[in-house]
């Protein structure tokens, strides 16, 4: 069973819908035992970093997420919350990936909204995805590049489109909204 972590960030339903289209049932839950007992965990989210972290801390979910040993996939805000710190609301995050989250400097339109490609650096999740494949992004903050970076997207500056460390995986773009390419990536995750 796949557990999708329920918290005060939108877009959770679309992850469940995407998994269902791939023939995979999931539960949306904020119950620590259900999350710990799942085969795989997805940590989605669109929203504001500070309020989201507060929600997780209030329920002890911050410690639950960090202690997970099964494959975990953070998406968008989920990726950012898995980093060390976010400039959004000056928020201390989970610190799974050794990267800071910053606001895009001026230069192009912000939020970065739309379809963009990435260069794959390493890791398992994005293997087999061609470099010209586009995925859907919508964000105003980005994770810096670090040793855990598995893919880089270039918009205003190069940033981490993907992060990977041990059992933790994260994507800045939305695979659940990225048409056939996104479905392939979700299938890669389900096959881990």
């Amino acid at each position: 069973m796949i557990a999708i972590i329920q918290y005060n960030a939108g877009n959770i339903r679309s992850v469940q819908n995407a998994l269902r289209r791939l023939g995979c049932e999931s539960i949306v839950t904020d119950v620590p035992e259900e999350i710990r007992g799942a085969d795989k965990v997805i940590f989605p989210g669109v929203g504001e970093a500070g309020t989201a972290m507060q929600y997780l801390r209030d329920r002890g979910l911050d410690e639950v997420i960090c202690s997970l040993r099964q494959p975990v996939l953070g998406i968008c805000l989920g990726l950012q919350l898995m980093c060390t710190h976010s400039e959004e609301g000056d928020t201390s995050c989970l610190g799974i990936f050794d990267a800071a989250v910053r606001r895009f400097p001026p230069g192009e339109k912000v939020p970065h909204i739309g379809w963009n490609n990435f260069s794959h650096i390493g890791g398992r999740l994005l293997s087999g995805i061609p470099a010209e494949a586009d995925c859907y992004y919508v964000h105003s903050y980005y994770a810096e590049r670090c040793n855990d970076t598995s893919a880089v997207c270039d918009y205003i500056l190069p940033f981490s489109a993907g992060l990977e460390k041990d059992n933790f995986f994260a994507l800045q773009f939305h695979p659940e909204k990225s048409a056939a390419t996104g479905e392939k990536i979700l299938q890669n995750f389900l096959a881990l």
Binding site: N17, R21, Y136, S178
Partner: peptide, 8 residues
Amino acid sequence: VAAEINIP
């Protein structure tokens, strides 16, 4: 729509 389509 949300159940059927895979774009935003």
